[in-house]
Design a protein around this nucleic acid. Structure first.
Length: 201
DNA sequence: GCCTAGATCATCT
DNA sequence: GATGATCTAGGCG
């Protein structure tokens, strides 16, 4: 059920961003397992995408992870407070990634509730990239982990959405990326309350 | 319910 | 030394 590394080496990051909807993201921390259904993603397409950290082939200590072969996690801190979780895809030296923006709590809800200090019935518990990562207990120590390991991994539990249940839209928070901000590379499940901000088309 | 402002720090210039 | 792939609380209507 765990997705094999070959799944992530697909070079079509747009396809993967779409295909990851409905997959289940697991983390295990100190023996505590939590999992959530992925309901919102964004594609970041390597060196040709101005919104990507690796735009233009930029390569620093931080972005080094993006150049890894697919199947590795990329976690970084944004605005000084929020940890954002990405899945590195494609092959080595091709810095594509999929940002996980929202999950629907599935397993270990009580653990998520204590981490977020709010009930899972409240959509805000895992809506938005910072919240989703926190609910799953993801922080910087999860950077550069293999996704077929036993700390963090993604499973296919047979959950699929009909094409008409999936919506696409503009990515969020990337206005500075100029024309690339207009690319419809955000994918989400329509009318799912755990999806952040505009969850309709 | 909607909008505005403030928090807070690793990373790059 | 500036800045951002954000969240939340609090004020107003």
């Amino acid at each position: 059920m765990k997705l094999p590394l070959s799944y992530y080496t697909n070079q079509d990051v747009i396809f993967l961003a779409q295909n990851l909807l409905g997959k289940v993201l697991f983390t295990e921390i100190n023996g505590e397992i939590t999992a959530g259904i992925i309901v919102e993603t964004e594609a970041y397409s390597g060196i040709q995408d101005k919104a990507s950290h690796a735009y233009g082939g930029r390569r620093t200590d931080r972005t080094e992870t993006l150049y890894s072969p697919g199947g590795v996690s990329y976690v970084y801190l944004c605005y000084g407070i929020h940890h954002l979780f990405n899945v590195v895809t494609s092959v080595e030296n091709d810095p594509h990634a999929v940002l996980i923006r929202a999950v629907e709590p599935l397993i270990g809800k009580e653990i998520m509730e204590s981490r977020r200090k709010m009930p899972t019935t409240k959509a805000a518990i895992s809506s938005g990239p910072g919240s989703a990562a926190k609910a799953l207990g993801i922080d910087k120590s999860f950077n550069k982990k293999d996704l077929d390991g036993n700390e963090i991994w993604i499973e296919d539990q047979g959950i699929t959405y009909n094409p008409d249940e999936i919506a696409t839209g503009l990515r969020i928070g990337v206005a500075y990326a100029q024309e690339d901000a207009l690319l419809p590379w955000r994918f989400f499940v329509k009318n799912n309350k755990y999806v952040s901000k505009p969850n309709k088309v």
